[in-house]
Simulated scan of single mutants.
Amino acid sequence: MAAEIIEFPNRGYQDPLVTSVARLEQMVKEVDRLAAEQPADGLGQLLVVMERFGDRLVDLAHLVLDDDAKRNVQIAFTSLSDKIAATRDAFDDGATDL
């Protein structure tokens, strides 16, 4: 796996928005890699990445949204996390229909 260097606009100060977007880009690349290299075997890892992706989106939302929108984002991603956990449990139990 090749390492990538992310160049930030100002080396002395890292803008939280730029940092969050860079982290999201790295996760998207990880999902793309998993889908290409391990489409079936990487399901557990894909679910982990999706959870991290959701957490990062919530972090990003807190930087750019007002309080009401932040609460809505938090509720939506809590629901997403619950669904990811249910999916993981279903696959761990060997269930085929969700």
Rank of each mutant, 00 (worst) to 15 (best):
M1Q: 15
A2E: 08
A2C: 15
E4Y: 03
I5M: 08
I6H: 02
E7I: 13
E7A: 13
P9H: 00
P9T: 05
N10I: 04
Q14R: 15
Q14W: 14
D15G: 08
D15I: 03
D15V: 08
P16Q: 06
P16A: 05
P16E: 01
L17R: 14
V18S: 00
V18M: 01
T19A: 12
S20A: 12
V21N: 11
V21L: 11
R23F: 01
R23L: 01
R23P: 01
L24Y: 02
M27L: 14
M27F: 06
M27K: 12
V28W: 00
K29Q: 14
V31A: 04
V31H: 06
D32W: 06
D32N: 15
D32F: 08
R33W: 07
R33E: 00
L34N: 15
L34M: 14
A35Q: 10
A36D: 08
A36V: 13
Q38N: 14
P39H: 14
A40N: 13
D41C: 13
D41L: 12
L43D: 03
Q45Y: 03
L46M: 11
L47D: 05
L47T: 00
V48R: 15
V48S: 04
M50D: 01
E51W: 02
F53Q: 04
G54L: 04
G54P: 10
G54H: 00
G54I: 09
D55P: 10
V58P: 00
V58R: 09
D59C: 03
D59K: 09
D59R: 07
L60V: 02
A61T: 05
A61R: 04
H62T: 01
V64R: 08
V64Q: 03
L65D: 09
L65N: 13
D66Q: 13
D67H: 09
D68R: 10
D68P: 07
A69H: 04
A69M: 04
N72Q: 12
V73P: 02
A76G: 12
F77H: 01
T78E: 02
T78P: 05
T78F: 10
S79T: 03
S79R: 14
L80W: 11
L80E: 02
S81I: 12
S81R: 09
A85M: 07
A85H: 11
A86I: 11
T87S: 14
R88L: 05
D89M: 12
F91V: 10
D92P: 06
G94F: 04
G94W: 03
G94H: 06
D97Y: 13
L98N: 10
L98W: 06
L98G: 10
